Computed example of a mutant assay.
Amino acid sequence: MEQLFLPLLLMLVVAIPLVMGTRKQKRAAQEQQKLQSSLSEGDRVMTTSGLYGTVADTTSDTTIDIEIAPGVVTTWLRQAVREKVAPEVADEIDNDSDDDTVDTETVAEPVETPKAEADEKPGPQIAPPLEHEKK
């Protein structure tokens, strides 16, 4: 009987962490599947690659459209969605409600910019190509 005790104890020591690990993995997979099925338009999400965006379309079973910038919609696999994130909150300027009077000397007047400068949008700056010396 003592000959079976040690191998049985070793098997239990190995089997218990394996069983607990598979239960944890199964639970995580169920939570991920629940998240992917609960996605709806307007949800703010983060993908597995770290890209933040807003869900634009959820009509497909396997893919999802995510708006990553205004007017830029990309198609992703649903499995690429890692988590829902809280929507962005715009920082509001803290106005002092105690001071109702405005000092006219400290208020800056708006600066007028020429029409041509206001219409021009700065484009991306592209570095010139590197020139390697030929040997």
Rank of each mutant, 00 (worst) to 15 (best):
M1G: 12
L6V: 13
P7Q: 07
M11I: 06
A15R: 04
I16W: 09
L18Q: 09
V19L: 14
V19I: 11
T22K: 11
R23L: 12
K24P: 01
K24R: 13
K24Y: 11
R27D: 11
A29F: 03
Q32A: 15
Q32K: 14
Q36L: 15
S38P: 02
S38N: 12
L39H: 01
E41A: 01
G42P: 00
V45A: 01
M46I: 14
T48L: 15
S49R: 07
Y52L: 11
Y52T: 03
Y52V: 07
T54H: 01
V55A: 01
A56P: 00
A56Q: 02
A56N: 06
D57Q: 12
D57L: 05
T58F: 00
T58G: 01
T59R: 12
S60Q: 10
S60A: 14
T63I: 10
I66E: 00
A69L: 14
V72M: 10
R78T: 02
A80V: 03
V85F: 03
E88A: 15
A90C: 03
A90T: 12
I93T: 14
D94G: 04
D94A: 14
N95R: 06
D100P: 10
V102M: 02
V107W: 07
A108V: 05
E112T: 08
T113E: 07
D119L: 11
E120N: 08
K121Q: 11
G123L: 12
P124L: 09
Q125S: 10
Q125F: 15
I126N: 09
A127W: 08
P129T: 07
L130D: 09
E131V: 14
H132A: 11
K134Q: 13
